[in-house]
């Protein structure tokens, strides 16, 4: 079974009948870095939250390794939300112990190495760190797992260009060849060089799923340029 995630007829309607996803069908293979791209309000975050079991589907289903979102799928999905989500009172070292306790695939040594590379003290409390440093800590925790699926929601949005390069290097160098990385972002130029595939999503519908190579060959332009063409206002 090469499919890691199967999304079948997925629909999500929020309160007041706001349609966020409209009968989406999608297959996410193993061993790829995939960009989930779309303008604001296109349904990217909704899809990500549904895969992580943080929202309830209105219709359709999601299968991760053949299982619906639940404790089993959560043990093989490493998720970086678009917000600061760790308890501010925790020390970085406590966070390492927390992740090590709950995720069998967490590698504390890898986390410590990355923290040392960025000169982040393990004794520091999260609330004393800057927003950018907190985001780096979050990414380190998420990428220090040997997960099958990494879902990164806007991982480079809030950090400076130098840190972006570090983050992208971290993503590329820390996932194994059987794992898939799903990255949602607006900053396509920065991330395009690491992507194998892209999924364009608009108005809750998938408008394109293709390899980066094929887009460049068939359209004769970069993914960023093609994105601007497809989503031109």
């Amino acid at each position: 079974m090469n499919e890691l995630v199967e999304v079948i007829g997925l629909t999500k309607v929020y309160e007041k009948k706001k349609l966020a996803l409209d009968h989406i069908n999608l297959t996410i293979p193993r061993g790829k870095i995939i960009g989930l791209l779309g303008p604001n309000g296109s349904g990217k975050s909704t899809l990500i939250k549904l895969i992580n079991g943080l929202l309830v589907t209105t219709e359709g289903e999601i299968l991760i390794n053949g299982k619906r979102p639940g404790p089993e799928s959560k043990s093989c999905v490493s998720y970086l939300p678009e917000r600061t989500y760790f308890q501010g009172g925790m020390k970085v070292s406590e966070l390492i112990s927390y992740f090590a306790d709950f995720y069998a695939d967490f590698r504390p040594d890898r986390a410590r190495q990355m923290l040392a590379n960025l000169q982040i003290e393990e004794t520091a409390r999260l609330k004393t760190l800057s927003k950018g440093t907190k985001e780096k800590v979050q990414l380190i925790m998420v990428m220090s797992r040997d997960a099958q699926l990494y879902i990164l929601d806007e991982p480079i949005a809030g950090v400076d260009p130098a840190a972006r390069d570090y983050i992208l290097r971290t993503i590329i160098s820390n996932y194994n060849e059987n794992a898939t990385v799903l990255i949602s972002t607006h900053l396509i130029t920065d991330i395009e060089k690491v992507l194998d595939e892209v999924i364009f999503i608009r108005g809750g519908r998938v408008v394109l799923q293709d390899t980066v190579e094929h887009i460049r060959e068939s359209r004769g332009k970069s993914v960023d340029a093609y994105f601007r063409e497809v989503f031109a206002c």
């Binding site: 939300p81 989500y85 709950f102």
Partner: peptide, 17 residues
């Protein structure tokens, strides 16, 4: 805070029922 706000993104993605 731990279950229904930002921290819930960690709490509810732990591999627990």
């Amino acid at each position: 805070k731990n279950v229904f706000t930002d921290e819930g993104y960690l709490t509810n993605t732990l591999p627990v029922s």
